[in-house]
Design a protein around this nucleic acid. Structure first.
Lengths: 209, 209
DNA sequence: TAGATTGTTAATCGATTAACAATC
DNA sequence: TAGATTGTTAATCGATTAACAATC
């Protein structure tokens, strides 16, 4: 595996926000945007915005601003979300189903290539038009699909096992919704999502004196 | 409103992880834990763990470690998650329903006090045993409930309007699942959750050379 | 040209890490 | 006491902010 990115992680996270706002500007027919206007839209300061872009190169014209279309496609290219990417969804329960139904996958060119579950009641059935496969077949089926990204929408006790299978199947990036720390080999990236943690943080912040 | 916390936000986010691990240790019957063992469990270094706690006071005994039960309840008290807190869920669609069904609310002592939607098909009905109210009644009903926390599981175009209603109803903390920047008055805290952003970040990280 | 806005440098700020004295 | 582990200080590291020269 390669050494960690020189790009600050917070900067990387903001890039995705920029893409979203640029898409909206494009839909609205706007052709040019300044860092000041981006601050208005995203809440990220103009200086921060320009600094974030500077890690990757030059994207604007002094005195003029940024071309909306061009900037959007260049950031999308940096994030590698210009070409369609297959992702594996593990867990066809409430959360998995809700995620599958989420509109917006396509805006970022992600495509759910397969859905897995270990519940015999669900295996062989469909969730929102997608076939549900036996989680035991992750390695086998991803040999065909070649996905590098997996989403874990399974109960906490199952998460580590599923993560192992996904990694064995060649996945190198995981989004984990289960409240467990996943042990993964070096080179595998895990992003954790936990709304209970967000609630706990809020709980502290709103009760401060 | 009050000035921002002196506690680093990353430290605050980690506290919730500590609570979770301590709950597990308690269930496993463990009575004492060292910062080194916590590192093993959470992935947060022992030094970081001790430093995080030091913002709040002293929690352990030198040469011995931390009492599991005691530490858990003291961190829970810091986060204000020892007493039950009512939360408002807005959006009874796929995501809202999945969140409602999520096990674990209770471990952090959150209780969904009311569910709202603006779809006439859903209003008056039930979602997983909870009554669905007209989103137009948020202010009215929260006068009774007195919740300070709201979750937004609504489509992006509806989010800003709902946020306004929640704030008017007295909510000071929001967890927003919609991919929009919410404009809120000073003093209202917003935590954003976006799995598409997580996917975009992963996309960059796994494709690095 | 004059006005606007970028890209970049330097200064500031804040968080993490390492080391160790305190103390159980 | 000797060994272990905390709480805290100081050093390091990294990100953000402010300022401005470059340039459209």
């Amino acid at each position: 595996m390669t050494r960690a990115s020189r790009i600050p992680l917070p900067a990387l996270e903001r890039l995705s926000t920029y893409v979203r706002s640029l898409m909206e500007l494009k839909s609205a027919g706007k052709q040019t945007v300044s860092s000041r206007e981006m601050e208005e839209l995203t809440g990220v300061t103009a200086a921060q915005f320009r600094k974030d872009l500077s890690y990757f190169g030059e994207f604007g014209r002094r005195g003029v601003g940024y071309n909306v279309c061009d900037l959007q496609s260049r950031i999308a290219a940096l994030l590698r979300i210009e070409a369609e990417q297959p992702v594996l969804m593990v867990g066809a329960g409430n959360l998995g189903s809700a995620l599958i139904a989420y509109p917006g996958w396509n805006a970022y060119r992600f495509r759910i290539a397969a859905v897995f579950d270990n519940d015999p009641q669900k295996i062989g059935g469909e969730v929102r038009g997608l076939h549900v496969y036996d989680a035991g077949r992750i390695v086998e089926l991803n040999a065909e699909i070649g996905s590098q990204i997996g989403l874990l929408a399974v109960p906490a006790p199952a998460a580590q096992g599923v993560a192992g299978a996904l990694v064995e199947a060649g996945v190198t990036g995981l989004v984990n919704f289960a409240p467990v720390k996943l042990d993964t080999p070096p080179g595998v990236r895990v992003r954790q999502i936990s709304f209970l943690r967000e609630l706990a943080v809020l709980s502290y912040l709103i009760h401060q004196d």
